[in-house]
Nucleic acid binder design. Structure first.
Lengths: 333, 333
DNA sequence: ACATTTTATGTTACCGATAACATGCTATCC
DNA sequence: GGATAGCATGTTATCGGTAACATAAAATGT
């Protein structure tokens, strides 16, 4: 890589101006078909590679959409990202990904870093952000979409569902099937906002249905996963039988709990019901299958892409898209 | 966002030249502490955001490392990405991610797109690429790391393990525990190169140990996951008892197979052994736990980050890092 | 045949930061 | 006290495209 090949080189080879090359590369109709072909040809031969950095600089349009996710290692967030990623390509945008580790302070740091790349829009997971994050975004007037949890005070567009409503479905179902002594298995108080919203949803739904107070079971710091679900039940041991339903913050946690119940010899669903959240693959495959709610992770991503597309082409769009959540009955309840 | 705030604006506010502001922002020691503080202050007040695009353009260093993964929705690849992502921050690099969907043609398209962003290095998963991909990279002299599968003809550095060796461990273990009629459950012939390497590893290890020919069971097109593992066993039904061990291409597939065996009433491991690959969380939590091999997904990412760091600072490094794979015994074998 | 429109291409200036070089000013030394 | 070294800051040119405007050549109309 002694000297980099630029449009100028291609232009000289063909015998036209760099401007014509630039036009040809953007498939500008005003460049004659013949010239375009010659330019393509020469570019190919010279091994020219288009430089998006220069374009981003000159046009002040980066072609980037910045995305933050709590974790990439979560099948649901990954599905959302996939839906977004596959759909966004059409509008010529590229995604810049950052993982917050479920912490809004980390999110702030990430947003700061991502903003230096001049993204044309920002997609955040969740509706809670540090004041500095909010300020950074609003000062710039950057288009924002918040996804997953529908926020009370949105920054811009939002696409997702209500954790409380989704958990309400679960609790109603459990109550309808005669379960009364519910425990909620999730992260420790305060650590995970999404988890906290789900716990709150369970508690209020239980209260509304006249069930006894829900017992919160701390499964450790977020992100809680299979191991934590298993460990939480292992810690309880046979006293898990004090409950007749474990409402878990997510399917992985539910699966961990289910496996541990089997090890303990606690029969699911006869002695104990177990429910998850998110409709992960493990819930659909395990034996018995886990009762859960489908929150359309994939579709969230796809809808975000659609909204982005519309936003960037200046359309008027609904500010808030609630994709809802549907109960998926399994054999654990 | 009427007019964007630049270093010039900050410079004017403080009463210095833009160059001094530039130096201050890069923590250049030659700028006096007092001036630096005043610049920081003014930048803060004006809401100035550093523009990496301009820097990337001027210095011809993008600060990007491009990464391709087969899929983001795979706990192992996600872990590798996480390891890489968390370690790479130190060198000031940012990752640009693309997912190939396990297809080298898509990889080529992605690499093309990523190259327009002038990445300073490229990280590819796997050792098989289209000729065009290889050409694109070598012409540019772009530093490359191939990870996961150690390639026969590497493009540059490589960090990973041998699929064949790892599968060898599994087969040896099965053979040593008296299993003889092995089936390999994976993607259809040719579809998935990584899967094909694993199948080949099983077949040759079995041959070496004098076991009968291994039966290949097609679990569908890559990526094969839990559902596919379950469906493959469901399709076999009770004739699965013709085998005494199912060697699965991955833990999710093994878990699907295990669940389906339970539904069928086939006893694992008494009637049938099941093994996985990759040491996914589900293998460690399911009951029984699944025998698998740990390929150090997280560490692959971390090592790649280390190699990148060294590469970019011009150190001499080992060209090939084999992190090996270790057998993890579970209750399914 | 000449004016007018259309088509294809060229010219110029600029996006925001920074490398390389230049310079003014203040300590330090004998 | 004058020369020298060192520190802090300034000047200039530039990275590779492209918006906006300009223009030459060909096509069209009357």
């Amino acid at each position: 890589m002694i000297t980099r090949i630029t449009m100028r080189d291609v232009a000289e080879a063909v015998g036209v101006s760099p401007m014509t090359v630039s036009r040809a590369f953007r498939d500008d109709e005003t460049v004659s078909t013949k010239t375009r072909a010659r330019i393509r040809q020469a570019a190919q031969e010279l091994g020219y590679v288009y430089d998006s950095t220069a374009t981003a600089f000159r046009t002040q349009k980066s072609g980037f959409v910045a995305v933050t996710l709590p974790s990439i290692n979560n099948a649901n967030f990954a599905e959302t990202y996939r839906g977004l990623s596959e759909r966004i390509g059409d509008s010529g945008m590229q995604l810049l990904l950052g993982a917050t580790g479920y912490r809004i302070e980390k999110e702030e740091e990430l947003v700061r870093q991502l903003l230096t790349r001049n993204p044309e829009a920002l997609v955040l997971t969740g509706g809670h952000h540090t004041p500095a994050t909010r300020a950074l975004i609003t000062i710039r007037g950057l288009p924002v979409i918040e996804m997953w949890d529908l926020p009370e005070i949105p920054l811009g567009y939002s696409v997702g569902f209500s954790n409380a409503a989704a958990m309400g479905r679960i609790v109603e179902h459990l109550s309808a099937s005669g379960r009364r002594r519910l425990a909620f298995v999730g992260a420790a108080e305060g650590a995970d906002l999404r988890g906290a919203a789900r716990r709150a949803g369970v508690i209020s739904a239980a209260a509304e249905l006249g069930l006894p107070e829900v017992e919160p079971i701390d499964a450790g710091p977020a992100p809680v996963s299979m191991q934590h679900g298993a460990a939480a039940v292992a810690r309880l041991g046979h006293s898990v039988r004090a409950f007749d339903a474990l409402v878990c913050v997510s399917d992985p946690v539910a699966f961990g709990a289910l496996s541990e119940c089997r090890r303990l010899g606690v029969s699911v669903p006869d002695e104990l019901a177990i429910t998850g959240f998110g409709h992960f693959e493990v819930a659909a495959v395990s034996e018995p299958r886990i009762t859960t709610v489908d929150v359309n992770a994939r579709r969230i991503g796809e809808e975000v892409a659609r909204v982005l597309d519309g936003m960037l082409s200046g359309e008027e769009l609904a500010g808030r898209i609630d994709l809802g959540a549907s109960l998926v009955l399994g054999g654990t309840s």
